[in-house]
């Protein structure tokens, strides 16, 4: 019974979180915290922090976390399946339509108009992460600027763009260097 409830709740979360990531938060909160009381508000805030700190989509992270706490590993698996179930069906359907009508004139025009918008969305996500690194939650003034972060960002950009280094390697180097510099400066 609890498995069915978990499956249905995360099915709703998966179905209504359009636009990814942060769109899912309010729905997880209303389904999991408010409706079922599976997490307290504080546990929910931990979930958000953890989801931000670990790889993977927040919906999958949330399903695994909640499922585990409510009904162990089977719970985690069932909740995760529930959360991706709507996407499996809807995305497959859209893919079918896309490949079927791709060559159509109107469809082509729509797709050409969507491509620049997708680039803009990606750019916006990237700048959002950069601003969060540079200023965190503080006001965006020069006194609050995280200089170490800025220099690391510049170096990482150069390493990827000009030197063509592996992005995963660059990411871990950034993490290690950032921690190392703070340890050296004794500001930990």
């Amino acid at each position: 019974m609890i498995y069915l409830q978990l499956f249905l709740s995360f099915l709703i979360v998966g179905l209504f979180s359009i636009g990814g990531g942060y769109a899912a938060m309010p729905i997880i909160q209303s389904e999991i915290v408010a409706k079922h009381g599976w997490l307290t508000v504080e546990e929910f805030s931990h979930l958000v922090t953890i989801a931000e700190m670990t790889p993977g989509p927040i919906v999958v992270n949330g399903a695994t976390f909640v499922g585990n706490r409510i009904a162990g590993i089977p719970g985690a698996i069932i909740a995760t399946l529930g959360s991706i179930f709507p996407a499996l069906i809807i995305v497959s359907l859209l893919a079918y339509l896309y490949y079927r009508y791709k060559t159509l004139d109107t469809m082509n025009s729509i797709l050409s108009s969507l491509r620049p918008v997708v680039i803009a969305l990606i750019a916006s996500a990237g700048l959002g992460i950069l601003l969060n690194l540079l200023f965190g939650q503080k006001a965006q003034t020069i006194e609050n600027l995280n200089w170490i972060g800025l220099v690391l960002f510049g170096a990482a950009f150069f390493a990827m763009r000009k030197l063509k280094w592996n992005p995963v390697l660059v990411m871990f180097l950034c993490g290690g260097l950032y921690l190392g510099i703070h340890l050296l400066l004794g500001s930990v």
């Binding site: 931990h46 922090t49 953890i50 700190m53 680039i119 990606i122 750019a123 996500a125 990237g126 700048l127 992460i129 950069l130 969060n132 690194l133 972060g149 690391l152 960002f153 990482a156 950009f157 390493a159 990827m160 763009r161 992005p167 660059v170 990411m171 871990f172 180097l173 950034c174 993490g175 290690g176 260097l177 950032y178 921690l179 703070h182 930990v188």
Partner: peptide
Amino acid sequence: FATNKYVNLMLKGMQAGVAALILDVVF
């Protein structure tokens, strides 16, 4: 895990790499 400051600093630094990757792709 969530309150460990070393983990937090490491993850903060990784944001620099992530932002650089995204903007590289955008270019």
